[in-house]
Amino acid sequence: MNIEKEILRILNGYQLSCVLTTANQLRMFDPLAEGSMTAMELADRLNLSVKGTDRVLNCLTSMGILVKQEGRFMLPDEWKPFLTRDGDHSMQEWIQLSSDQVPILNQLPEFVRTGKHIANIMQMLGNDRERMRSFIGAMHDKALKATWMIAREIPIGEARHLLDVGGGPGTYSLEWAKLHSHLHATIFDIPPVVEVAGQYIRR
């Protein structure tokens, strides 16, 4: 193993994730999924600087996420389900969650030095409703595949009531309720989370 290259690979991983989270946070992928655009066209549409937009787009191209032809950038079909808001496997909120966790991870040296408690993700989100919604959405997206399997492996039988403590957006409750029409589920969580759960239930 080339130790120097391995260290650089690890460090570059952080830099590449910053490019991805920046593009995601600035909502660059949805317009690029509609068709090819120049950096100037995308910057104008999203009210961004042309210089900054061009650099991010070229970075994404070097990462293999975008395709660039004759100065125009586009998001290939295979990436669209994962990077667009309405994609079947959209990871936009999960990517945003990764970005929100950076300030917490940056406190790691202080935690190691002192052993004192550091802020958790809920404290970092505070009263920001949009970031809270994104966080809960990311938790929902992450749990979907596991939920589908677990709901079919754990028998409900004749049970008619389910209390989902710390139920988040109701991912598990919703899946069990779909499978068992006689089941009534109650989701118990903190108020901001329950508010988002209501949005998922009404869908």
Rank of each mutant, 00 (worst) to 15 (best):
V50Q: 04
H140K: 05
L57I: 03
P76A: 02
K51H: 06
E41F: 10
E6P: 02
L11P: 04
R131E: 15
F111H: 07
G198K: 02
V50D: 04
H161N: 07
L42N: 00
T22C: 13
L105R: 03
S62M: 03
K116Y: 11
D189G: 11
R203E: 12
S98D: 09
V196K: 06
H117A: 10
Q199Y: 09
H182P: 05
A138H: 03
A177S: 15
W94F: 11
M37L: 15
V50F: 06
L60W: 00
H140W: 13
R27N: 09
N12D: 12
R9S: 14
V112L: 15
L75F: 01
I156M: 14
W176P: 00
G167D: 06
I118P: 06
L179N: 08
D86N: 13
G170N: 05
A146W: 06
T21I: 12
M74I: 08
D164A: 07
P155I: 14
P103S: 10
A43G: 09
T53Y: 00
Q25H: 13
A33H: 03
F111D: 04
M91D: 04
R129N: 11
V102Y: 07
G35V: 04
A143D: 15
V56Y: 00
A159Y: 09
L60G: 00
E78W: 12
V67E: 01
A143F: 11
L83E: 01
V50M: 05
E93R: 03
V165S: 06
T22H: 12
M40N: 14
D164Q: 06
V102E: 14
P31S: 12
L174R: 14
